[in-house]
Nucleic acid binder design. Structure first.
Lengths: 115, 115
DNA sequence: CCCGGCTATCGTCGATTGACGATGGAAAAT
DNA sequence: ATTTTCCATCGTCAATCGACGATAGCCGGG
């Protein structure tokens, strides 16, 4: 039995859970969608999201250990995901814990579902 | 009233509607997902999919007219989408009609939903 | 048969991506 | 205080992308 709840992240500040009122289509939505697609369009970044899904949160070093890539490369991929709003990072001393931004992921799924 | 049905394409041969038995996760799914994400990760290609969604099918020239891009560029984008299996093209004389591959799109949505 | 419209492909060029090692900086450990 | 650990950033290089014009191929109409 796990002591985590489905709607909580265990490493980052609580999320904004207000509903997303933005439209699912139109020029802005197209741009937004393309941007998120681009951020995810790399096997390593898909894997990172998968890892965070399983672990619920994860420090950077663990991801580096799992992926067959140099530390700097992983850091670069994390940056791409973070800038797209898909993940969030929380500094904890010398470590950095990353977790999914569930709100952004919901938005992404909604945009894809609208295709 | 339209004479088209939601589950039919009006330009391409009938689709294979058998359920997709492939897994939604794992290394192969990651690669497959990253490939589809990459194919869609461009504003012009998102727009093309949107156009095909609205029109149900569309000849190449119409897409060229709508997008602010050269004909050769649009053709290139169509090729990317086609190679990823997201759209299908049917030659009709001197024209080529494109339509969505709903089966592939369903697969894509399922993969994204599994993130 | 040649011509004109429609589409795909080729070649090119600048911009972006993705990989790496090296370096830097901040906090923890000694 | 020094060293160690962890992570981000920088610089570089090859590879890929995305845009375009030019060109080739194909089919239908005249």
């Amino acid at each position: 039995m796990e002591n985590r709840k489905a709607n909580e992240n265990n490493c980052c500040p609580p999320e904004d859970n207000r509903p997303d009122l933005r439209s699912i289509e139109g020029p802005e939505a197209d741009e937004e969608l393309a941007q998120m697609l681009k951020a995810l369009a790399h096997p390593a970044r898909v894997q990172i999201v998968r890892i965070l899904t399983r672990r619920d949160s994860c420090i950077c070093g663990e991801i580096v250990d799992v992926l067959p890539l140099a530390q700097s490369t992983v850091s670069q991929h994390l940056k791409v995901l973070k800038e797209a709003g898909i993940i969030r990072g929380e500094v904890d001393g010398t470590r950095v814990g990353y977790c999914l931004n569930q709100r952004a992921l919901r938005r992404f799924r909604a945009l894809v579902a609208g295709l």
